[in-house]
């Protein structure tokens, strides 16, 4: 965007929204919205504290483990569904149901099944992410050029060879698209899991801050989480663009 002949860097509009926040905060309309400057000051104050670091480490652990399982299971199940008609008929209705289901409602069930610990949080995270990864991998396999598969068969490719050397690569652009959306969902999953299940990680911090009306702290942690989720998503979008350059040409 251009303003008075100058090219504005991306996301310049955030300055405007930040100013608005500051004004609303200073006008003292509600205790719920402290001025942005105060929130930022709090942010830098708490970012080095042991409580924050512990929360970050616990969240990162649950998040990466959950995403790992979701990606591995999602890609394998998705490709197999795309390859195998029977498996597709069996699983597709469930995948669609879980994709649109309010998974938050399932979290209490998970607590009963897997306890109040990290295990349940990891499973919640994976459950949020896995369905869209399955659907996208499946869609990627469905659009594979039939003659690539015949080619692999004619040269005697084993099912394993076909899976890793044809299906995976041919579906990679769609798979990465699914992984990106899945990871964004996993961010939601890991926070919701922490809030509902056990008093650890950022969930615990949210509980603590909101219960004590520490709104500056509350917003500071929220900004950190939003920024993290946004950065991860943009990084994945960048990777996706790098890989899908050939997708348009296949």
């Amino acid at each position: 965007m251009h303003l008075f002949g100058y090219r504005l860097p991306g996301m310049s509009s955030l300055i405007l929204w930040g100013l608005l926040w500051e004004i609303v905060g200073r006008a003292d309309l509600t205790f719920f919205v402290p001025p942005l400057s105060e929130v930022l000051a709090t942010l830098f104050a708490i970012i080095g504290t042991p409580a924050f670091k512990k929360a970050l480490a616990e969240t990162a652990y649950a998040f990466s483990l959950g995403v790992f399982f979701a990606v591995v299971i999602g890609i394998i199940v998705g490709i197999l569904m795309g390859k195998n008609r029977l498996l597709d008929e069996l699983l597709l209705p469930w995948v669609n149901v879980f994709l649109s289901a309010p998974l938050t409602a399932l979290v209490p069930v998970l607590m009963v099944l897997f306890g109040f610990g990290m295990k349940s949080i990891v499973i919640t995270t994976a459950l949020f992410a896995v369905w869209i990864i399955i659907l996208n991998s499946r869609a990627g396999v469905k659009q594979i050029n039939r003659s690539l598969i015949e080619m692999a068969n004619s040269f005697g490719a084993s099912p394993m060879d076909a899976f890793f050397k044809i299906y995976f690569w041919a579906a990679l652009p769609e798979i990465l698209g699914g992984v990106r959306i899945g990871i964004i969902r996993a961010v939601k999953g890991v926070i919701i899991g922490q809030l509902l299940i056990s008093i650890v990680g950022f969930g615990a911090l949210f509980e603590l801050y909101s219960a004590n009306f520490l709104m500056g702290h509350f917003w500071a942690v929220l900004i950190v989480l939003f920024a993290l989720a946004f950065t991860i998503s943009e990084f994945l979008a960048y990777l996706e663009r790098r890989v899908s350059y050939y997708a348009a040409k296949r």
């Binding site: 050029n145 003659s147 690539l148 015949e150 080619m151 004619s154 040269f155 044809i166 690569w169 041919a170 990679l172 050939y246 040409k249 296949r250």
Partner: peptide, 14 residues
């Protein structure tokens, strides 16, 4: 036997 395909059937990523 080896097969030559009408649409070439090349791997676009390779």
């Amino acid at each position: 036997r080896a097969f030559v395909f009408q649409d070439f059937a090349l791997l676009p990523w390779a």
